[in-house]
Design a protein around this nucleic acid. Structure first.
Length: 804
RNA sequence: GCCGCAGUGGCGGAAUGGCAGACGCAGCAGACUCAAAAUCUGCCGGGGGCAACUUCGUGCGGGUUCAAGUCCCGCCUGCGGCACCA
């Protein structure tokens, strides 16, 4: 009898041995094939590791360990996305420096991750709040600035009334702050913006050349939201000015019966004097401005609006004078902030027209436009449209665009939903923006030699009441000289958003200690692109898009060798509480990974999280399930007692061994860890049934299981007398020919129902199989006196006989 | 409303169009034990039958096929994301 399985003793021991042996340190031998496996680096929150974290980490740890065994030079790094609001809020509340909070949290996280035995190369750890790191974040910002991709503008921004911070559109969730849940309202502020829209086409096009799971691609495409339409100028009646609109349906131009502009449209201000009902217009505008984006869309069920008296537009195709309305269902942030309304063929316009009694003119036949807007673009034919009559929508579009272009009053235009990225935060705990403002020279970038521009010590981390960053109160720091003219100047007091540091961290891992550059060119050439990046679906449209944008920009600047950062992207599902709900303190269903490690061991936690269900779907935690995985590991451990001599596989188990190697090898690659583990469970069930296992069979099992349960496998590898370490062994090979049995049991169906099973040779042709099938008593009984109409034989699967 | 994902035993979940329910959990019975836990062995979708067996079963309604959880058409429910995008 051997000693019982005691993870507590084994796991610590092997973690220390791996450290001492520098087992997972990345080699600098660039002649070896490389593999770059990446997981999203965590935000080191005060709560410590959540059981959701180990799911993706274990998955790619398995891939990384397997790749090393396959002879690759593997980069599998870890770091900290440590700037951010929770740390700052904690600092404010408890009067501790955010740096100290971060240090403590990082230490805690790191100890927790280490206890799980991940094969991260900790020598390459990065931290976004380290000045040696954010120096390069600032450096990249300066590059963007110099290319005109960073600019400052007055923007109506989303303003969190609780955090007192401006938020990107993407950070507003249902009208609430994504971080704190506080109310978000609109507020005009001077903000730094990044022109991600300049890269919209490239970001879209690049998706065709990467191996991302389909739903990630679809989300990104929808987010970028490319649509092809036309811009058309409507002359204002009796004026020189035109009102420019964007439409995806220029073919319906003859059906435009009125125009709508957004309440913020500059036209209102410009013709203030001439608008006969300006009081009414101004009141409506004021009301709209008070509403948050959320309210504007919530209240949208009932359309509101006001007509602009005294000003009207002329439809360029037929010279008809049509009124201009103001309504908040038209957004200033999309297109030109103005539309032509075609109530017959647009749902929103139709609703609006019905409510305000505006005319509805059918220009595409096929529906009943008095009942509902007819929006089908496939079947309809143009009517009431002069020279477009009789054409299909697609043809009409082309013809009208050509006509408009010829007249110089319109042209084809591509629009995107994607908006520029609000890059300012009125916060302390972020990267300072390395720009000064000089009365004479405007916004001037700091010289690169002055980077990093360090965060100064401040007395209070509270944002000021007027919304300025705490840095604005630091006059010593704020007042400086202009790098351009030497005159007095002020530093930018806004800081960067958390997304900044995470937009390029995978580049720093490649060469984390480089003082001369964000990473050396030779190292970048070797390691890029990231071969496999796994992360949460929630980062698909924010982080993933932002980092692709920065990478493409760096590529255009000649600073990185690939135009896409990530070759392959996968996503994992969430781990829910035992009750099937999202884990949260308030629901009281949070599971602490430390407790699982203490009670069952890290290998059990790893195995369980991989066994819990399909990797890309969410799964509910089950303490009983954890116990089952521990039982599996116990059973593997106890196989020591059944060990017999023999380096090879016994004849009767040979096929099973090769099948299992194949299944595990392929399933790991497909992220089907649950079925890979199930296959190993089945294999040891066979070992138990046989009452013995050879050393060769057992060693192969250990190699297959080692990426999942590395500590136990190292221990057993040594205990059974194998030399070296499991992590340094070669991944087992299978022989395809040996994965197939000589004989298989196939089902015999008669009229599609299984009536019997017979044994046939795996390679039997139909004739040989037929003989065996017909020899079966049950089959013969059923067939007697019946007419065989058809016989279908699928090799090794089924024999179906159709009778009458 | 739009986009995406899912719906299979008591539960988590398996099934290149080819024997639905692998593997695990829970449950039941037995072995071991003074006893319990742990462990080991066996059973384990519903109805009917002493039984060999039979019949119904993958959210619902149709269809294609020798054969459908899987493919097609039309719905329903849940989860996630976006939301007046012209």
């Amino acid at each position: 009898m051997n000693t019982p399985y005691s993870p507590k003793d084994i796991e610590k021991k092997w973690q220390e041995i791996w450290d001492a042996e520098r087992a997972f340190e990345v080699g600098e031998d660039y002649s070896k094939p490389k593999y770059y496996a990446l997981v999203e680096f965590p935000y080191p929150s005060g709560q410590g590791l959540h059981v959701g974290h180990p799911r993706p980490y274990t998955a790619l740890d398995i891939i990384s360990r397997k790749r090393r065994m396959q002879g690759y030079n593997v980069l599998f790094p870890m770091g900290w996305d440590a700037f951010g609001l929770p740390t700052e809020n904690y600092a404010i509340k408890n009067h501790v420096h955010p740096k100290t909070v971060t240090q403590n949290n990082v230490a805690h996280f790191k100890a927790q991750l280490k206890s799980l035995g991940y094969s991260f190369d900790w020598e390459r750890e990065v931290n976004t709040t380290d000045p040696e790191y954010y120096k390069w974040t600032q450096w990249i910002f300066l590059k963007l600035f110099k290319k005109g991709l960073a600019y400052k503008t007055q923007m109506p921004i989303n303003w969190c009334t609780s955090c007192k911070v401006g938020l990107a559109n993407e950070e507003v969730v249902n009208g609430k702050c994504e971080r704190c849940g506080g109310e978000v309202v609109r507020k005009v502020k001077s903000q730094w913006m990044l022109k991600i829209t300049e890269y919209a086409d490239k970001l879209l096009e690049g998706l065709d050349h990467v191996d991302y799971i389909e739903r990630v691609k679809v989300s990104q495409k929808n987010w970028i939201g490319r649509s092809v339409g036309a811009e058309v100028d409507f002359k204002l009646s009796g004026k020189e000015d035109v009102l420019r609109i964007f439409t995806t349906r220029p073919d319906t131009l003859f059906g435009a019966t009125y125009m709508v502009i957004s309440p913020e449209h500059p036209l209102v201000e410009k013709y203030k004097e001439e608008i006969t009902n300006y009081g009414e217009v101004a009141a409506y505008r004021e009301q709209a401005a008070k509403k948050s984006d959320f309210e504007r869309t919530e209240l949208a069920k009932e359309k509101t609006g006001v007509v602009m008296g005294g000003i009207s537009a002329v439809n360029p195709v037929n010279g008809k004078e049509i009124p201009i309305w103001i309504s908040d269902y038209v957004l200033m942030t999309y297109g030109t902030g103005a539309i032509m309304a075609v109530p017959a063929h647009d749902g929103r316009d139709w609703e609006f027209a019905k409510k305000f009694g505006l005319p509805i003119i059918e220009v595409v036949a096929g529906g009943n436009v008095q009942e509902a807007a007819f929006t089908d673009v496939e079947t309809g034919k143009l009517v009431n449209s002069d020279f477009l009559d009789g054409l299909e929508v697609k043809e009409a579009k082309e013809k009208i665009i050509a006509w408009l272009t010829g007249k110089g009053i319109g042209k084809q235009k591509v629009n995107f939903k994607l908006r520029d990225w609000v890059f300012s935060r009125q916060r302390y705990w972020g990267e300072p923006i390395p720009v000064v403002h000089c009365e004479k020279c405007g916004y001037v970038p700091l010289p690169e030699s002055e980077l990093p521009l360090m965060l100064p010590e401040v007395d209070s981390y509270m944002p000021t009441d007027n919304g300025e960053s705490p840095l604005a109160a630091m006059t010593d720091w704020l007042n400086t000289v202009c790098p351009c003219c030497g005159g007095p100047a002020k530093r930018e007091s806004d800081t960067m958003p958390q997304w900044a540091g995470s937009s390029w961290y995978f580049l720093r891992y490649i060469d984390p200690k480089n003082k001369e550059a964000f990473a050396g060119q030779e190292a970048l050439k070797y390691w890029l692109p990231v071969d496999w990046y796994n992360g949460g679906m929630e980062h698909t449209t924010l982080h993933l898009l932002y980092s692709r944008f920065w990478h493409k920009f760096l590529y255009d600047e000649g600073l990185v060798p690939t135009d896409e950062p990530y070759k392959k992207r996968t996503s994992h599902g969430m781990i829910l509480g035992e009750n099937g709900e999202k884990m949260s303190k308030s629901r009281g269903n949070v599971v602490n990974p430390d407790e699982i490690v203490a009670e069952f061991g890290a290998d059990t936690l790893r195995t369980y999280e991989m066994f819990i269900g399909a990797f890309d779907l969410s799964a509910s935690w089950s303490q009983e399930g954890v116990r089952g995985c521990r039982r599996f590991l116990d059973r593997v451990w106890k196989l020591q007692d059944s060990l017999v001599d023999g380096d090879g596989y016994r004849k009767e188990l040979e096929t099973r061994m090769h099948q299992t190697i194949k299944k595990v090898s392929l399933d790991f690659e497909a992220l089907k860890f649950n079925t890979a583990i199930a296959a190993m469970m089945s294999l040891i069930n066979d070992f138990y049934k046989a009452g013995k296992v050879t050393k060769g069979e057992f060693s192969t099992l250990l190699l297959l299981l080692s990426p999942v349960a590395p500590h136990m496998c190292e221990e057993l590898w040594q205990l059974v007398g194998n030399a070296g370490r499991v992590y340094a062994q070669t991944w087992p090979e299978y022989d395809e020919a040996k994965t197939v049995e000589d004989e298989v049991e196939i089902a015999v169906q008669i009229n599609g129902k299984v009536k019997a099973t017979v044994k046939v040779g795996t390679e039997d042709a139909q004739e040989a199989a037929r003989e065996k099938v017909m020899a079966d008593d049950t089959v013969a009984g059923i067939l007697s006196g019946k007419n065989i109409v058809k016989e279908i034989y699928v090799k090794g699967r089924i024999y179906n006989i159709v009778v009458k």
